[in-house]
Design a protein around this nucleic acid. Structure first.
Lengths: 209, 209
DNA sequence: GCAGTAATTAATCAAGTGTATAATTTCAAA
DNA sequence: TTTGAAATTATACACTTGATTAATTACTGC
């Protein structure tokens, strides 16, 4: 009986493959389905190998969460482009409520991980990092946006706006990703942009360009 | 060696205890920690008993989710009271962003369950029910609120408002429950009410009473 | 081409899981 | 008080889980 053949991969590649396999497992089977064996199978690898790249399963899952969140924020932030602040903010909003940020798979992974934050300190820390990054991004853009319009907003007011806008985006993202409603028929981007403009006291037309 | 003593309970009570124990387990240990033995221990009962009240663990968890969501919506809806529509809407909003609806334990349970919706059809159905109930409640209140003010809003516009408001409340609820920010210092109720008024085009003062 | 090292496999382990069932105990009715 | 049925316990089972280790294989540098 002969062993299965294999070929070596650079450390970074294998780590990446294992993380990708983990995220696929979580998306399709839930966190409970992301077993060491399932992940190894999807990565085309043997279960024992995981331990060479991650001390234990907990670390693997935490690493997967970190890259997931980082990628998600990066994708959303990439929608900003450059130009005046209100255009960048509009880009961020558009990216946040459309695929690939807003879709079922992303939500599934996010939800599965979020469910662990309360009972797992490692996951809680990984979560805090990513969350704060997004909030800071929004707060920065809102501030710039208001300043651009000559509004002399206090830091406190900017923060308040950021909190509300962040909440709105989170909520819309969840609703859209969940897909229960007939969002296909609506212009979700339009809804998100108009609502944001209303909340910030900006002329909605300015967002539509 | 003598067996442990026990006393019988009416079917409804036992079911309730088991569900409560399940929710406690999920809140503190996550879904993975809600094992048959853990739940039984918390309910002061032996693991085998669970099978007498629920065909299998899956059913127990689904039942727990259903009662959890139902209670949550009921608690939020109880904040409505009676009176003019805008007062009832304000009550719902207030209830949604304050304890016991908005707190860490509630969020933990919610998140743990949400994480299963994508990979578990039974949970998906339980989820859809509860979610729709809340959305309908908001839509109804928004409609009444606008009509009360003489605004002749189309059903489509009402629906749009409900979607946005629901998203805002969901997002705020998550942010507050997560507790990462220094919400303790802010008047979250005020923020929620003012934002809602802005979105619906209502005078904020009308909400503050 | 060869040797050595490191990556990978294969096989095994102990612990924990949900489930099943038989043995007991409680309680209400007679 | 006794009896019988239903609720509860206790025990066991088959399976899956994450982890561990020795044996093998692939690749790098010479």
């Amino acid at each position: 009986m002969t062993r299965r053949t294999f070929h070596r991969e650079p450390e970074a590649v294998r780590q990446n493959d294992l993380i990708a396999a983990t995220l696929d497992s979580v998306a399709e089977l839930g966190l409970a389905g992301a077993t060491v064996r399932e992940v190894a199978n999807r990565a085309g690898v043997t279960p024992g190998l995981i331990r060479r790249y991650f001390d234990n399963k907990e670390r693997l899952v935490a690493a997967a969460y970190r890259t997931f969140i980082a990628d998600l924020i990066e994708t959303a932030a990439a929608g900003c482009g450059d130009g005046p602040a209100h255009t960048r903010l509009a880009g961020l909003i558009r990216a946040s409520v459309t695929a690939p940020v807003a879709d079922g798979r992303t939500l599934s992974i996010w939800a599965a991980f979020i469910g662990t934050v309360n009972s797992d300190p490692v996951m809680a820390e990984a979560h805090r990092e990513g969350y704060q990054a997004f909030r800071d991004l929004i707060e920065h853009l809102v501030g710039e946006c208001l300043r651009e319009r000559g509004t002399d907003a206090s830091q406190q007011l900017i923060r308040r706006h950021a909190i509300v806008l962040n909440a709105l985006l989170d909520g819309l993202w969840i609703e859209i990703s969940m897909g229960g409603d007939d969002f296909s028929r609506m212009d979700v981007v339009r809804i998100a942009l108009d609502s944001t403009a209303t909340l910030l006291g900006i002329d909605p037309a300015e967002f539509r360009e």
